[in-house]
């Protein structure tokens, strides 16, 4: 259960939002909406613990995420604007190393399965820089499966994806939620996934 109370965000001299409360329970997902520059990404970065809120507190299962620190980060997965992919490495190496950084084991066979499931068959051993923007995005999304996190924080996960991949990702999120997972995401499209809550900035 992720809860936040009285969040205030100040960027430079501008106050983007203040006194924001939110809660996400297992099986629910939070759709963060707002115009460009309303502070959607800032809110997400606060929820991950990367950015400090000017005021307010964020709790995970009733404990402050500052106190939980590593325990919280183990339960949470954040995918941001950037790919966090190394262009020189192959999708397979990227997935393996991402898992290793998290201190987790990832068998090569599992990684291959996931990549194929995301439509990257035949490109597992190709350096990422030869992939298209959409394919890079798919490599990134493969982490959703390989890293088993309870809370997904996704910043614009649907950008650069084709219709088929969008459906697939929506299905993946739905599955995650029905398994008792939680998700927070920003998106300009409305997504027909059950358990939606909306926050407007």
């Amino acid at each position: 259960m992720l809860t936040a109370t009285g969040l205030t965000c100040v960027r430079g001299e501008r106050r983007l939002f203040s006194g924001l409360d939110l809660a996400v329970a297992p099986g629910e997902w939070l759709h963060v909406q707002g115009e460009n520059g309303a502070g959607k990404t800032s809110l997400l970065r606060m929820l991950t613990g990367l950015a400090h809120a000017e005021a307010g507190e964020i709790r995970w299962n009733g404990e402050s995420i500052r106190v939980l620190a590593e325990d919280y980060r183990r339960d949470m997965l954040f995918l941001g604007h950037h790919g966090a992919l190394k262009e020189e490495l192959t999708p397979l190496e990227n997935l393996g190393l991402a898992a290793a950084l998290d201190g987790a084991e990832l068998a090569e066979k599992d990684a291959l399965d996931v990549l194929r499931r995301f439509g990257l068959r035949g490109r597992e051993e190709l350096p990422v820089r030869f992939l298209s923007a959409g394919q890079k995005r798919r490599v990134l999304l493969a982490r959703l499966v390989t890293r088993k996190a309870k809370l997904w924080v996704l910043d614009e996960p649907f950008t650069a994806l084709d219709v088929k991949a969008v459906d697939m990702l929506a299905g993946l999120i739905g599955e995650h939620l029905s398994d008792g997972g939680m998700a927070v995401l920003t998106s300009h499209q409305a997504m027909p996934i059950a358990g939606c809550k909306v926050v407007k900035l």
Binding site: T48, G49, L50, E70, D71, R73, R74, M76, F78, G80, H81, H82, G83, A84, L85, K86, E87, A98, L101, D102, G103
Partner: peptide, 11 residues
């Protein structure tokens, strides 16, 4: 490329 963010968020 955002890897540093992932490192900071890793357990």
């Amino acid at each position: 490329d955002g890897t540093l963010e992932q490192m900071a968020l890793s357990p």
